[in-house]
Amino acid sequence: MAEGSSSIKTNLPLVLPSRTARIWRERIIASVLFLAAISSVLITLVIIYILFSETVIFFEKVIELDQMSLWQALLEFFTGTDWSPLIEPLGIGILPLLSGTLTTCFVALFVAVPLGTIAAIYLSEFAPAKVREVLKPILEILAGIPTVVYGYFALLVITPVLQKIILGVQQFLFPGREEWDYFQLPGFNMLGAGISVGLMVLPYICSLVEDALQAVPLELREGSYAMGATRIQTALSVLIPAAVSGIVAAYILGFSRAVGETMIVAVAAGLQPKFTFNPLEGAATTTAFIVSVSLGDLPHGSLEYQSIFAAGIMLFLATLFMNVLGYFLSRRYREVY
């Protein structure tokens, strides 16, 4: 042993690089890394600052034009059901835009949550390895399709099909009328747009729910099978409760994406702000309003220009609220393994 260890001995350099140089090098590296980390935080803060400051200018202009107090303006903003900041008389109630956003979102979640969850359970627990290898990449391609394509899909495929179905159902239930006496689904409607948003969100929800199910420890899965449970019993009564925090987070993320979705609703849901929760009607969502207004030639500092930020801040607050809610829900239901 003694001979062996002496033969390993090598001549290590005794001269180390200068200590000062080493310390400075470490400091420079640390600051570069810090700058990279802080930049996204700074950019977020700048965006929030611009949103708030431009919104303040919006209210100042409204107060000036309509001769009302700040409180009246705020009250009008949050409770008014007429949004027409571009034409006299001014309507600055945000509710029509929010109702459009919420309606399309709920239609989207109505499609994406059940479908995404079921697909995830299938992929995670039932699909043979070969099927999963084919299906997962296809699902991920679905997430890569530009949203404007989904918009035209809603306008040109989903809506015509819905129109035929709705007409057919009416003709079946109340036969004998002329075709134009039945309710006609408008070409721009929140139902078709919402379904399309749902299809866009579906791969995200499915993929995240599948990840959550896969993260459930093997012992729990085997424990359930060892009790004589079938695959569906295991999935429903052990895996889903165990993965609930991840599943809730997936739904919230899907909701946030649906709230922020712009092109699909701008193309397929219509651009007329209207206070309604009926998905069979057409109405502008917050994002659709922003994109439609900003398509024109907007003079900087005009009321139209400022109204974009007022609508934008509502969108920001809505997604922020959802994200905070998601954070607390997933902490509340977190399972400690």
């Binding site: 420890p217 012992e219 729990l220 085997e222 424990g223 359930s224 052990v238 409760p241 165990a242």
Partner: peptide, 9 residues
């Protein structure tokens, strides 16, 4: 099992 595995119930 080797590791206690109570279900999340």
């Amino acid at each position: 099992f080797q590791k206690p595995n109570p279900f999340p119930k």
